[in-house]
Design a protein around this nucleic acid. Structure first.
Lengths: 109, 109
DNA sequence: TAGAACCGTAAGCCATAACTAACTGTAAGT
DNA sequence: ACTTACAGTTAGTTATGGCTTACGGTTCTA
């Protein structure tokens, strides 16, 4: 796998998407996240584990509280991956356009 | 949902990821894609439907052949979404750092 | 030390998405 | 009209991942 399929798979889940959206605003604890979501706290915990392993979030502890925040580094990498895919898509598109032009020339059209 | 959760969910599946990777190189037919993957052609067809509905690929027909290629537009949008998320992450990070500095000041440390 | 608050983990359940095989639709050639 | 090649669709199967409940660990305070 080029870029981690783990990262993309992590982002793919609706509950995890909602969590990432929440974390855009500010770091949050497990409990805080769970409050705004239609799932239990342990479910949130499990999702956070996946996000952490995909490096999309980082964790820091203050006493009993575990704060999670978005990881800018990982997002930058993800953006880079999409960027390269976009470039490839453009490249393939212009190759196709050039090919069509050659086709039209050949058909005298 | 801010950016389409449909798009992110579409990218999340390993088989679809592999397909997108293949399509970076050049447009391909259903059959061609299926040849390089450990799943049947109907499975590929079904996945392509999801990718098409998420606008991540576009389709063009030449006779009996259906060619699929990456959609640069959609990739640009996706990149934009990740970008904004990255910016938010940076913002949240610097707010946190500033907060820590205030904390340290207060503690005379 | 006990109790409260916070949270990770394990294990069971089950809805669903990814898979397959079979069928059907479309395009093109004879 | 028939055949071949390509691909979409349907329906059944099943593995799995997301959910829940229950339990136990950690931290802090009185």
């Amino acid at each position: 796998m080029a870029y981690g399929s783990k990262e993309l798979a992590a982002i793919g889940d609706p509950t995890r998407q909602a969590m990432l959206e929440r974390l855009r605003r500010r770091p949050m604890t497990v409990g805080e996240l769970a409050e705004g979501l239609p799932v239990t706290r342990p479910a949130v915990s499990q999702h956070l584990k996946i996000l952490r392993q995909a490096r999309l979030v980082t964790e820091r502890r203050e006493g009993t509280r575990h704060y999670f925040n978005l990881n800018p580094e990982a997002l930058l990498e993800l953006r880079g991956y999409i960027d390269r895919m976009w470039e490839d898509a453009l490249g393939a598109f212009s190759r196709y356009v050039a090919q069509q032009k050659r086709k039209r020339k050949r058909l005298g059209k």
